[in-house]
């Protein structure tokens, strides 16, 4: 079972109107891997994440999760998605954390974490609450269990968002620029949580601008530019010894 990649993306294409945002992206994610995706704005990083999480419809290519086909393109160049029931099952294996948290403002912190457990995973409310407690402890917010999102700082909100995603027990956790909307001093607390998850071998894909984090925590780094993967490899290689000219230029611009 370990030979089948957790996530397999082949020739992923996505257009917005006439704009070709993804021009054929292909990569694998293995179980337990932490992959950082870096690149300039407009390179298609977020779009790629959103396509995998069924927030956008692709225009070409294929995506499969642990061997189960989510979408593929047939011989007539037609994009075919799996059946709704199949997609729903796949959805439950994926979790996502957004740049702007997207917490539910009318639910308390605990409710944010238990709602999906109860109504999607059909868990018993008491079990759901227990899980919520544990996760809050894990992200260091046990004292905020009954608070409402408007009472929390950005960093606290994002940590709750992570707990909310974890509550559904996903196989892969996706992060779309998790710290980009945070004040610098709040970034660390969120990165620490992600780091802890990495230590527990949670399979994760993190789109980020935090190069330090990418270098220290990721198993692999993917550099994207203009809708394509330009270079990928171990962080040490990418950051110290980039091969591609564009990679070099990008790293130069940010360091």
């Amino acid at each position: 079972m370990d030979n089948i990649p957790m996530l397999e993306v082949r020739g992923l294409c996505k257009n917005f109107e006439t704009n070709e945002v993804l021009s054929g992206v292909s990569f694998n994610i293995e179980k337990g891997e932490v992959v950082a995706v870096i690149g300039p704005s407009g390179s298609g990083k977020s779009t790629m994440l959103r396509c995998i999480n069924l927030l956008e419809r692709i225009d070409g290519g294929s995506i499969s999760i642990a061997g189960d086909m989510m979408v593929h393109t047939n011989n007539n160049k037609k994009v075919v998605y799996a059946q709704k029931s199949q997609l729903r099952k796949i959805r439950l294996r994926l979790g996502m954390v957004f740049q702007s948290f997207n917490l539910f403002p009318h639910f308390s912190v605990t409710q944010n974490i238990t709602e999906a457990q109860i109504h999607v995973a059909k868990k018993d409310p008491r079990n759901a609450a227990e899980t919520a407690n544990e996760l809050l402890k894990k992200v260091g917010l046990s004292d905020k269990a009954d608070a409402y999102p408007y009472q929390l700082s950005g960093g606290q909100c994002q940590r709750v968002a992570i707990a909310r995603a974890l509550a559904m027990n996903p196989d892969i956790l996706f992060f779309d620029e998790p710290t980009s909307a945070l004040d610098p001093e709040l970034t660390a607390e969120v990165l620490k949580v992600i780091q802890d998850l990495a230590a527990e071998h949670m399979t994760m894909v993190v789109v980020t601008h935090e190069m330090g984090f990418a270098r220290d925590v990721a198993d692999r780094v993917i550099f994207m530019d203009k809708g394509l993967i330009v270079e990928e490899g171990k962080p040490a290689n990418i950051f110290s010894n980039p091969q591609n000219g564009r990679t070099k230029a990008f790293l130069k611009s940010i360091f």
Partner: peptide
Amino acid sequence: GQYEAAAVLG
């Protein structure tokens, strides 16, 4: 974002 967060949670 509210719709999207709900969607990814299933």
